[in-house]
Write a protein that binds this DNA or RNA. Structure first.
Lengths: 302, 302
DNA sequence: GTCCTTCATCGGTTCAATCGATCAACCTTG
DNA sequence: CAAGGTTGATCGATTGAACCGATGAAGGAC
C-alpha cells in the first residue's frame, strides 16, 4: 500500500531529529541544505503524512507523528547498519577486537590450545579474555562488555543464543588406593556410597555434578575454589569428585595421587557452547570459530 | 564506512531468499528479471560482499553470508514497514479493528461511558472487547490476540509499555448501620479491627486492597467473584471491603444497604493505565485514546 | 524599518533504476 | 550427441530521482 521509505530519507530524518535544524542536519549528512529539505518533503509525500509542523514560522517543529517516525527511523537505520556490519565482518573475518569470556572450569584447559590456534589462523584478531562465573559473564554479555562467551550447558542463559560445540563427559577422580579405582569404569550407582567433593557455590560445574549424581552425599562443609584445589582434596582422601574430561585430559591429575576412571550412566556430561547476544552482527564469525573450539577441545594440551 | 543498503535492494533480497529463483522473485517484486538480477549484484557491490554462490551453475545458491543477510534484511524491512504503518495509522486515526482487553473491576464501570464516546468520535472504529484477568489479558496481548489493555497498576506487566490514565482511589464500603459509617472519612488505622472481604484470587484488585490495608484481617474463607457479589456480602453483614471510586461512582451500591466513605491514608488507590506492546505501530492512536479514557473515568455513568 | 537567519523552491545536471532484448550456461529430451 | 527449453547475467537506451547552487520568502533581532 504505502511505499516504504528510502534509506537516505531516513538518514535525513534522524539527523533532523537530532539537530532540529535543516542546515546542520544537512551538514551531518554531507549534503546540501536544499537536498535535505527536499528529502524530508519527499518522505512526507511517500508516507502521505505530515512530519513537520510548518505553521510555526521558520523553525523545525515535529508533529507528534514526526517525532514518532524519528524514533522508528532510528531503529530501522540500526537494522540497516547491522546488515552492513554483517557484510563487513565477513570481509575481514575475526579481525579486530573480540572480547571473549570463559568460565574457570573451561578457560585454563581450553585456552592453551585455542589461543595459538586462533593467533595462527586469524593474525588480525585481538583477543581480550575474561574469566568469571557464568552469571557474571552473561551480565557482561548483555551489557555489551563482552562479545562472546564459552559456557557449559545446561545453564539458564536468559535469551542469549547458544551454539553447542562439544559434549564434555564427567570422569570420576579418587585416590589411587580407592576400591573403585580397581575397576575400568565406575557405575553411577556406586557413587551413592561416596562423599562427593564440590566446587564453591556459583560455579556451574557444581550444579552439573550434583545433577549428574544426585544420589551421592555432597560434602557440604568444604567447597573448593578451583579444580586444582579440588584434586588435591581428593588426593588428601577427603572424598571423591567428578571431573570434566577436558580438565582430565589436560593432565590436571598428573603427579598427584589421584586415579581417573570413566563414569557409566546417562546424563553424565556437560555441553560446552558458544554463547552470544541474539542478532549479534558477528554471528557468522562465531560460527567460523566453532571448528577451532571443537578442535581445541578434541585435542587438549597434553 | 560501508554504505547502507537501499530499501529496494533489500526487497529484492528477501524475495530472492523466499523463492530462490530470480524470475519468480522479480515477479513478486513487480519488476523485470534483469532489474532484480542487477539489483542483487548492485547490493553485493554496495556491501562489498558475496551473496550468491555463482560457482554452482545457473541455480540460485546463497553463500553463508547471503543467507544471513536475507534474515537481517527481513527484520530491517519489518522495521521499515512499521514506519509506513505508523504513518498510515495517523491518517485514519482509530479506524478499523481495535481489540481491547479490560479487567472485570474496570470494564463494567468504564465501558458504558467509553464506548458511546468512542463511537461518536471515531465512527470507523470497530471495537472488539474482552474481559479477563490481568494475567490472561497480558498473555493475549503478547500473543497478538489483543491490541490494547486497560489494567490497574501496580501490576507486573512483563515488558509491556504502560500509559497511566488516572488514579482510582479506594473507598470503604460497609453496612449503613456500621459505627464507622457515622464518620465522614475512615482513617486507615480503623480498618485493622474489621473483617475485610476480598475478590477471588487472580483479580488484581484483591492484591491492591490487601496492599492498601495490610493491617486488616482478610476474610479468607469466602471470596467474591465480582464486585456486585462483594457489595451484597457487605450488605449482608459479613464484613467490610474497599471499593474503587470508579465502581462506587457508577452506583454499584445504589439500592443496597451499604454506606460508602472516603478512606484517609497514603497509598489507598490504584492506577488505571493503558497497556500495549512496546513498539506497537498504533502507539499514537493509543495516545489519542488517552483523553477519552480519562474523560470516561472522570465522568462515570450515573 | 533593516538586516540576518533559516527553510522552501527553482532550474539544471548527473547518476542510478529500470526495461526489453540478447547472450551464455546448464538441463532435459529424443 | 544434438536440439530445444530454462534460467541467470549482460547490454544499450530511457526515464526519473537525487543532488547542487542560486534565489525567494518568512520570521526574529536590533
Amino acid at each position: 500500500m504505502t511505499p516504504l521509505p528510502s534509506t537516505q530519507q531516513l538518514r535525513y530524518l534522524v539527523a533532523l531529529g537530532e539537530t532540529a535544524h535543516v542546515g546542520r542536519a544537512a551538514a551531518r549528512c554531507a549534503v546540501s541544505q536544499s537536498t535535505l529539505s527536499t528529502g524530508i518533503i519527499a518522505l512526507e509525500r511517500t508516507l502521505d503524512a505530515q512530519i513537520l509542523d510548518r505553521s510555526s514560522g521558520r523553525r523545525v517543529v515535529f508533529t507528534p507523528l514526526g517525532a514518532e517516525l524519528v524514533e522508528r527511523a532510528h531503529t530501522a537505520l540500526a537494522a540497516l547498519q547491522e546488515i552492513a556490519d554483517a557484510a563487513d565482518a565477513i570481509r575481514a573475518p575475526l579481525a579486530g577486537q573480540l572480547r571473549l569470556g570463559l568460565i574457570p572450569t573451561i578457560g585454563p584447559f581450553l585456552l592453551p590450545r585455542l589461543v595459538p590456534l586462533l593467533r595462527h589462523t586469524y593474525p588480525g584478531l585481538r583477543l581480550m579474555l575474561r574469566e568469571d562465573t557464568s552469571a557474571r559473564l552473561l551480565d557482561d554479555l548483555f551489557a555489551d562488555r563482552l562479545d562472546l562467551l564459552i559456557l557449559a550447558e545446561p545453564y539458564p542463559c536468559g535469551g542469549a543464543e547458544t551454539l553447542p560445540v562439544a559434549r564434555d563427559e564427567f570422569m570420576v577422580a579418587m585416590p589411587k588406593a580407592h576400591p573403585l579405582a580397581a575397576r575400568d569404569a565406575v557405575p553411577m550407582a556406586a557413587l551413592s556410597r561416596e562423599t562427593m567433593l564440590l566446587l564453591e557455590d556459583g560455579h556451574c560445574l557444581r550444579d552439573h555434578v550434583l545433577a549428574a549424581c544426585r544420589t551421592a552425599t555432597p560434602q557440604a562443609a568444604f567447597a573448593a575454589t578451583s579444580l586444582h584445589t579440588l584434586i588435591h582434596m581428593v588426593s588428601g582422601g577427603l572424598g571423591i569428585t567428578l571431573l570434566p574430561r577436558l580438565a582430565a585430559a589436560c593432565g590436571i591429575a598428573r603427579g598427584v595421587d589421584v586415579a581417573l576412571r570413566r563414569l557409566d550412566g546417562a546424563g553424565a556430561w556437560r555441553t560446552i557452547s558458544l554463547v552470544f547476544r541474539p542478532g549479534a552482527p558477528r554471528i557468522l564469525e562465531y560460527r567460523a570459530l566453532w571448528p577451532m573450539v571443537a578442535s581445541a577441545i578434541a585435542n587438549p594440551a597434553p
